[in-house]
Design a protein around this nucleic acid. Sequence first.
DNA 1: ATATCTTGTAATCCTAACTGAAACAACCTG
DNA 2: CAGGTTGTTTCAGTTAGGATTACAAGATAT
Lengths: 143, 143
Amino acid sequence: MQISSRFTIAVHMMTCMEMFKEEYKVTSDFLASSINVNPVIIRRILAQLRDAGLIEVKRGTGGAAVIKPLNEITFLDVYRAVECIEDNTLFHFHENPNSDCPVGRNIHNILDDKLQRVQEAMERELKSITLADVMKDLEKYIR
Amino acid sequence: MQISSRFTIAVHMMTCMEMFKEEYKVTSDFLASSINVNPVIIRRILAQLRDAGLIEVKRGTGGAAVIKPLNEITFLDVYRAVECIEDNTLFHFHENPNSDCPVGRNIHNILDDKLQRVQEAMERELKSITLADVMKDLEKYIR
DNA sequence: ATATCTTGTAATCCTAACTGAAACAACCTG
DNA sequence: CAGGTTGTTTCAGTTAGGATTACAAGATAT
């Protein structure tokens, strides 16, 4: 399975919030039209980013904005905010190996630390990329 | 989304094939009982591992065996054999960003290399672990 | 050749997750 | 209070994973 598009949508959303914060009120309809998905999807992700403390959303009057310095928001922050990974484990383990078999009895212990290392490698890389990097590239592309 | 349990099942399967190759004929029913899943699931994964050139499966008489040195089979080989990732991209990108928006127009170019780096970090770690490591740990646990 | 065990594969069913969409209460401001 | 916006629920469609049943096809022993 692939990682859901919620992650790239969330990065797109926060990039828009920053890019247009002076010119427009960045509402869920505004974001939905740049990203081309249903506004409800946007609002659900807005709530997840808000709960993670990355943005603030104004009720009634409307509009969303990033509330942390962009160079302090890593891809890992966004990933953790929107991707609901069970028990924070990337790999889904088969549930009931047979404990009467020497392999079945030990496979969990053998694999757990190895799978953990893989997950950490991925998260380390996610952590090394920030929204400030994205904005810098965006300005480069626009010029 | 998590990575499907096919991966841990496949590693479990190949570990069993190696562990019991002298004592037993390692059939899909044998594997299914150690792993505790349906034999058809096992046979489907057997086919994927066979197609990837990692094992051989005997029709009629039955039995499966690893056909490469264990220290040459990496977790990445197994992962690629059983996990069908669309276009070999770990992250699912939202399909239709609005090209009338400066962010929508550029977001793909901006993110693609960054997401690629994350995927490569993960695959590099997967590549560094082999089935020989698993067998070594298994012997340690059994003693 | 026939009985028997096994693999290969198709067909069904069930469940979970993702996305799209409609609807509406709650909220804020002018 | 009117109008725009968010928060949230609900339903439907799609896809993927896994369980299960069924059976044709292959290989071996006798």
